[in-house]
Computed example of a mutant assay.
Amino acid sequence: MNTDSQKKRHTFIIPDIHADERLDQALARLMPEYSRTQIKDWLDSGSILINGLAAKGKTRIKGGETVTAEIPVITRPHWEAQPIPLNIVHEDDALILVNKPAGLVVHPGAGNQDRTLMNALLHHDPALQALPRAGILHRLDKDTSGLLIIAKTAAALKHLSLQLKKRSLLREYQAIVYGTMISGGSVDAPIDRHPLQRKRMAVIDTGKSAVTHYRIAEKFRAHTRLKIRLETGRTHQIRVHMAYIRHPIVGDAVYGGRIQLAKGLSEQLITALRQFKRQALHAFALGLTHPDTEEFMRWEIDLPEDMNHLIQVLREDLNRNAP
């Protein structure tokens, strides 16, 4: 991995169709590979000139102005492409949808410099090296399985990121939690880094807004299968919120603590719970407005084998004790 500082020069004429628009809005359309925040910063610093002069973002343009931009750029880290199998659910010119298995880390980082989803994507499509995070729009924890969306172009990444920001991107999960829940509901509790245990997140009054909606999919004797929809996407959000309402996710050693064994569970179920070594959480559905066609698309995938097995044992335990 290496990075180099350099400058990129842009020179172009603003088309007349943008007449009477704000300068920052027009530039956002004409420079889709950059965020509006970046463009504002460059206007403020004088890195973008209009007809050779500094200008404010709120300036109304007439059309025909010459834009000259000397933009400082940090070349993105060059990560190694590695031939790691990918379960691709959908791919087109704008995006890739991947079913990530439990145990696969999404981004390289401390302790995981390679063998990640990003390394696999760069092998699948080397052009992704030009995009931030190889176009990966959001993330799943290492031991959470399921659907992830990857943008293949700068325009698609910007379009999808805006959907994520506006909370119009649909992300649905299934989870198996401890305890028999009575009804569905929502958790609206802010999340931030734990003040003492920095690798953990926690519900904190001064944290960032976090909203999780859940409904009951199936009840067992001492467990519940939930369908969960994220409204926001904070780190570890579902795991933190479920633990916060005292229904931690089965297998979550970080937020769930020790295995909870209710009285009367079958030996088969006790064994299955002890052998389940990751959080029973799976991103099973994802919906979005396609960046190119503007059509709403939704995908849904099956639960992984380990969760299906656990559910089957939970059902057998329930039936064994049925009157």
Rank of each mutant, 00 (worst) to 15 (best):
K7F: 08
H10A: 05
F12N: 10
I13F: 09
I17S: 09
H18Q: 05
D20F: 12
E21H: 13
D24T: 11
L27H: 02
M31I: 14
R36P: 02
W42A: 01
L43E: 07
G46M: 12
G52I: 06
A54P: 14
T59L: 12
T59F: 02
I61P: 04
E65L: 06
E65K: 08
T66V: 10
V67N: 03
V67A: 04
A69S: 10
A69N: 04
I74D: 06
W79Q: 10
A81K: 05
P83T: 12
I88W: 10
V89M: 11
E91R: 12
K100H: 11
P101F: 13
G103D: 01
H107A: 06
R115A: 13
L121V: 06
L128C: 11
L128N: 05
A130L: 04
L131F: 07
A134K: 10
A134G: 11
G135R: 10
I136A: 05
D143E: 13
G146Y: 04
I150N: 00
A156C: 09
L157S: 15
L162V: 15
L162F: 08
K165Y: 14
L169Y: 08
A175P: 04
Y178I: 03
G179Q: 02
H194D: 11
L196V: 14
V203A: 07
A210D: 08
Y214K: 01
E218Q: 13
T224V: 02
K227M: 07
R234Q: 05
H241E: 04
A243T: 06
R246F: 06
H247Q: 02
P248N: 10
A253R: 11
V254H: 11
K263T: 06
L265Q: 14
L273Y: 07
R274W: 07
F276G: 02
R278I: 08
Q279E: 15
L281N: 09
H282V: 03
F284L: 01
I301L: 03
I301Y: 00
D306W: 01
V313S: 03
D317Q: 01
N321Y: 14
